[in-house]
Write a protein that binds this DNA or RNA. Structure first.
Lengths: 201, 201
DNA sequence: GTCTATAAATCGATAGAC
DNA sequence: GTCTATCGATTTATAGAC
């Protein structure tokens, strides 16, 4: 064994940078990024502040790594074949389902991304990437409306904003294994295209 | 005049507690509550930190006042006559419109409310009040589904969460006077009951 | 790769003069 | 009701031993 009984203190291996990032993102989401100190992160990871600095150059480096992971997941959806071929409406339906799926899979990372305010360079970079993502979807909504695939009277810009808002709001309550969320991507898609509370009859 | 030319320094009247609260909430929403220091608030208000403390006992007192205002606006909607009489579906439609209207009227305050994480007693109180608000709406959704007013197959708990998410997401992009938002309460209500992107035909 | 110890800056908040 | 000045705690980050 590596730790001697006569040793002055127990060494607590951290599990590597990936494991530390996971811990940090969870803390950020619980308390908020700005309210979480490096001391908080160290305590949660079971090592000291100094040890944490050995793996990441600082607090913002952690944030940056988390935001990159979230954005790479989201943009991955736009690159899938079903998101680039077919009618605008079919592509939109696929993207909505895919976005919800990514949000479920990378929940902590996407949650953090959606709460970024723009205080640092990394945050502003993430906000710009988010805007680019939303703009691609807004363009597709516009196409679908222009092609007559959407019921007349729907304003594309407003619809795109409400669409983003509805999909992203899932991070506020979804937790893995939660009852009634087995087919969440399809359920959200149905809400988008048929209504959250469609009238009977 | 009250300020002499020979005076050592210019006095800068703050405009009262209400005016200071407005300034503070705007700063909180721009930078995030935790990332905003009393120094930031003082600079934005044009007075010193000490002067700010003369009007509010501290940073959290400002937050508390703002959260109370937001919650009083939201709960006001549930007390309106049209929210307590009629069919569940009609009451829901009124509440959705009213909630969006409050969100437009008290935008900075509601924005701050929706970003609270639960780090302090005031924040936990606000979260509990939000849960109570959401629970009332969820109960009404359940009533409407049970009464057969909603198309069969809609899960009440999920629908209530998506409803809250869609409505609340408006604070992420709405700004007073923004083009295309003249009838936002009705537009959001239509999205809820008919779909954000209803298929043509 | 972990630790102790501490630097340097900033934080929320207070004392007390005018 | 404003100000200057400052306290004590906390924060991010670094130095250097093991």
């Amino acid at each position: 064994m590596t730790t001697e009984a006569a040793g002055r203190r127990v060494r607590r291996p951290s599990g590597g940078a990936a494991s530390l990032l996971e811990v940090a993102v969870a803390e950020f989401n619980t308390r908020g990024y700005d309210a979480t100190s490096m001391e908080d992160l160290s305590r949660a990871a079971g090592i000291t502040k100094s040890s944490f600095y050995h793996h990441f150059t600082g607090k913002e480096a952690l944030l940056r790594a988390a935001l990159e992971r979230a954005l790479s997941g989201l943009f991955g959806v736009l690159d899938e074949p079903a998101a680039t071929t077919g009618t605008p409406l079919a592509r939109l339906r696929h993207i909505v389902r895919g976005q919800v799926a990514v949000l479920q899979r990378d929940l902590p990372y996407v949650t953090l991304l959606l709460r970024v305010r723009g205080n640092t360079e990394s945050e502003r970079w993430a906000l710009a990437r988010r805007r680019a993502f939303d703009a691609q979807i807004a363009a597709l909504v516009k196409e679908a409306v222009a092609a007559g695939e959407i019921r007349p009277g729907v304003e594309p810009a407003l619809a795109a904003r409400l669409l983003s808002g509805l999909v992203n709001s899932v991070v506020e309550w979804y937790r893995p294994g939660r009852p009634g969320t087995a087919n969440l991507p399809d359920d959200v898609a149905r809400a988008v295209f048929e209504g959250i509370l469609p009238a009977a009859g």
